[in-house]
């Protein structure tokens, strides 16, 4: 395939990945920003979102769109509630100590993953997309009659993939509004800036923490509901989103939402575009090393300001 159409296709694929990644990573970033803890179980909340999406969609009859819409609303709420419960029963009791939180969330990771295995089983199950039309993408070429449009072989996307990108943008805009324009966003930002001061001003920090933890998990679950018509729900699917979200959050500068979104776009596109030029496994090695070296030589992330 010629390079031009190839790059278009890789960019489109990268954009879908970036959209889902941005949502997932923003959840992780939010939790880190406000609570200063690393949630290793974040990928499992993503997985739970996909599994609940399958469960809801398969219990609602009628057109696939109804099941999908119900999943889009309910799955993030359920997952958010589970996460908030985990926060109140475990994380609060260890006082959000950074290292103990990592261990506790590793434990949580196994609990969620294995409980899913016991109930949902080890299969990969699909959720039907509400709509999925193939959209061929034209390209221009020079012919004897001048420039002409043609449809290169294989260069296509689907209407659903475009929807995923649009939905992610909408959700992120909503999140931005929530953080900057509402009272609850103000409380979160105040807690992020100075926990003790927030306590002194009578902000119910514990409730804010539970809310943030639930919101972070809900964002991951929402991302999973969006992706599950493209990929399938499987009990081990949380692994990759966790790793990638980690990378994105770090590159974006810990706790910075705009940085996180920029980094998600960067990582999503890099992952796709690098695979244009290198053999896939080599591409993964190079991308991974690149991320590590960015961190080594710019520890505050590409978009973060230098931290203390």
């Amino acid at each position: 395939m010629e390079l031009g159409p190839y790059l278009v296709l890789a960019t489109l694929e990268g954009a879908v990945m970036a959209a889902v990644l941005a949502l997932t990573a923003c959840g992780l970033s939010l939790v880190f920003g406000v609570m200063r803890v690393v949630n290793v179980a974040h990928g499992e909340f993503f997985m739970l979102g996909a599994v609940f999406a399958w469960w809801i969609a398969s219990h609602i009859g009628g057109a696939p769109a109804w099941g999908f819409v119900a999943a889009l609303i309910l799955a993030p709420l359920i997952v958010g509630a589970i996460a908030a419960a985990a926060d109140m029963t475990v994380l609060r009791r260890i006082d959000y100590d950074p290292e103990r939180t990592i261990v506790a969330t590793i434990g949580l990771l196994y609990i969620l993953q294995q409980a899913t295995l016991m109930t949902y089983g080890p299969d990969a199950r699909p959720v039907e997309a509400p709509f999925n039309t193939r959209i061929a993408i034209p390209w221009v070429e020079w012919t004897e009659a001048g420039w002409a449009l043609y449809w290169p072989w294989g260069v296509a996307t689907t209407s659903y993939k475009m929807f995923v990108i649009a939905a992610a943008v909408a959700v992120l805009a909503g999140l931005w509004g929530l953080m900057t324009r509402t009272r609850i966003g103000l409380l979160m930002r105040a807690t992020q800036l100075d926990r003790d001061m927030a306590l002194a001003f009578g902000i119910p920090v514990e409730r804010v923490y539970a809310l943030v933890f639930g919101l972070g998990a809900g964002l991951a679950a929402l991302a999973a509901v969006l992706i599950v018509p493209i990929q399938q729900a499987h009990y081990l699917m949380g692994h990759d989103p966790l790793l990638l979200s980690f990378i994105v959050v770090i590159i974006g500068g810990l706790g910075s939402l705009p940085g996180t979104i920029l980094a998600a776009i960067l990582i999503g596109l890099t992952d796709s575009l690098v695979s244009v030029f290198f053999s896939p496994t080599l591409a993964k090695i190079l991308a991974t090393l690149l991320v590590a070296l960015v961190l080594v030589f710019r520890p505050q992330g590409l978009f973060g300001s230098r931290a203390s």
Partner: peptide
């Protein structure tokens, strides 16, 4: 591994 998870959480607690 569920049990491993439970043990980890209990340990941290």
């Amino acid at each position: 591994m569920l049990l491993a998870g439970v043990v980890l959480v209990l340990l941290t607690l």
